[in-house]
């Protein structure tokens, strides 16, 4: 197999590596970069477990080939909390609303929520974004409460009514 040099910024750190053109970004993040918080749930773009933020947009790492990430700025779940472990407000909301059980879908959900939070999305938009995530454990009860909480916090000004 031919290998290609690529470089990107991963969680703030410049990263350069050699990849084969057919490797998915998901596999490269997990195997070459050690960011195993990026989970492989389906590898065909449906479950959302592999969600990361590339150039400020939440995307599915399983649907990108590694060479496509060349020059990009990538954020994974490992970058969300403070270095001392203090949780980001979306992580805190997830915890306080009991929105995870096994935790396998969780990193992807966190990344979508981070992007929604940064975009100041309202509750409906957050719920809409979360339709891109499959969770087999929770019946989404906690995630619904998180969406409401984030929607109230971030979208408060432009909400005319409930």
């Amino acid at each position: 197999m031919s290998s290609h040099p690529i470089s990107f910024t991963l969680n703030g750190a410049a990263t350069a590596l050699e990849v084969e053109p057919r490797w998915t970004l998901l596999d490269v993040l997990r195997r070459q970069c050690g960011t195993t918080g990026v989970h492989a749930g389906c590898e065909h773009g449906v479950c959302g477990a592999c969600t990361i933020i590339v150039d400020d947009v939440a995307v599915r790492a399983c649907l990108m080939l590694a060479p496509q990430a060349d020059g990009c700025e990538i954020r994974t779940v490992e970058s969300v909390a403070e270095p001392d472990g203090t949780l980001h407000r979306v992580q805190r909301a997830m915890r306080e609303e009991f929105s995870l059980q096994c935790g396998f879908c969780t990193p992807g959900v966190v990344m979508t929520l981070v992007q929604m939070d940064e975009a100041g999305a309202d509750e409906d938009a957050v719920v809409e974004a979360l339709t891109g995530h499959l969770c087999r454990c929770t019946g989404y009860q906690g995630m619904k409460r998180v969406a409401r909480r984030l929607g109230q916090a971030t979208g408060a000004e432009d909400r005319q009514d409930g």
């Binding site: 918080g37 490992e78 909390a81 472990g85 949780l87 915890r95 306080e96 935790g103 969780t106 990193p107």
Partner: peptide, 13 residues
């Protein structure tokens, strides 16, 4: 609150 959550929310599962 769950003791499990800190690692699972931060990608350290």
């Amino acid at each position: 609150l769950r003791k499990e959550d800190q690692r699972l929310l931060t990608g350290q599962g």
